[in-house]
Design a protein around this nucleic acid. Structure first.
Lengths: 204, 204
DNA sequence: ACCTGAACACCGTTCAAGT
DNA sequence: ACCTGAACACCGTTCAAGT
């Protein structure tokens, strides 16, 4: 009997083990993944090229789970859905964020998702030379608010008297609710701004 | 002669050494800072409690440098200035970002800067129960676009054919210009939205 | 072909020892 | 009081050796 078959590592298995770690707020890394898979760290290197590769695979797996496909809906409904899901994705995996940022995106699924967004904006009537700009804006938006949601309960902790800030923090609603409100407000603002910017078309 | 005086470590010296490292895109960490200061890593622990402490001190030093004080200007001019400077701060120190995110902010200077923003919004006429929400929104905004600016030249790198995205990327302006455009557009949108949201006051 | 074991060059942190 | 030196428990990665 071939002992190798018992293990049967694959890039997908490795990525999913990594996702389970970050979702469980467990320590994350090459060694931790190997431990979770009951294998030696060096074994992973036959299937992936290193930690960066694993992280990009994880990004792909995440987008597969969280993305929404464009259906028969207006472009702005699709954008809203994309932003909401993307933000939730980031917020559900805060521990992965430091690894995701600042790295070139190559995962085909992820590129596809951005492609869908670009197509939606185009068919909504936006000119080609503005679409990447808008995609970048939507991306920065989702990321910024994902980070906000991933922040600790106490984002600010004043240790000295303030003019106003400390009083507001003391009297404010619990963190999650406030963060949710600022997201809803900002999302509304984003969508209004996008509709505003849309070149006018024939009245229906 | 007292050999101790030759070294003379302080928290500020340690933080500034860390900033020089991230600004020079050199490897960053406790050991790297110690090397830069010509001292053993263990020596730092008499002055700071660890890496997290150092990072929070660095955040404070950064805000000291980048923040703007409220002068005789309308609230929206101040908000615009704050967002621009905050974004530039993040973009000038991309390597620090993974360490900054998701940590409670305690640095007095940083708290003061948020306090100024809160006061500006209040004196602009926003109701108290909305100010933290707006501060959170402005914060997420600056962070999201700072990240965008800190991204690699090639944010997206399709490896398979796309419907539209690949064509747009090929025909687009260079990365920095596009990112700059999406920031200017979004900042404009943010300010319009804030002014819109301001409860109406007596006409001047 | 695929996994192991040992090795390498790193981390951040603690703590007794020196001065 | 402040810095060193040694030690500890980790990292990510490489590579010869096993099957």
């Amino acid at each position: 009997m071939d002992r190798r078959r018992i293990v049967g590592l694959t890039p997908t298995l490795i990525a999913d083990a990594g996702l389970e770690l970050v979702e469980g707020a467990e320590p994350f890394g090459v060694n931790a993944i190997a431990r979770k898979l009951g294998v030696r760290p060096s074994s992973l290197y036959k299937h992936v090229s290193g930690l960066d590769d694993i992280v990009e695979l994880m990004r792909g797996r995440l987008v597969e789970r969280y993305r929404t496909l464009p259906a028969d809906q207006p472009w702005d409904a699709f954008v809203e859905d994309v932003v909401r899901r993307q933000r939730r994705m980031y917020a559900d995996h805060p521990a992965l964020l430091p690894f995701l940022i600042g790295k070139t995106i190559t995962s085909p699924t992820v590129i596809d998702a951005y492609d869908d967004l670009a197509v939606a904006l185009q068919s909504g009537g936006f000119p080609d030379d503005e679409i990447l700009t808008l995609v970048g804006m939507i991306d920065a938006f989702a990321l910024g608010f994902g980070l906000e949601l991933a922040s600790p309960e106490q984002v600010w902790q004043p240790e000295a008297p303030t003019q106003l800030f400390g009083k507001l923090l003391a009297g404010s609603q619990s963190g999650p609710e406030r963060v949710e409100r600022s997201f809803e407000l900002a999302l509304d603002v984003l969508l209004v701004a996008l509709r505003d910017r849309l070149p006018s078309r024939d009245q229906e």
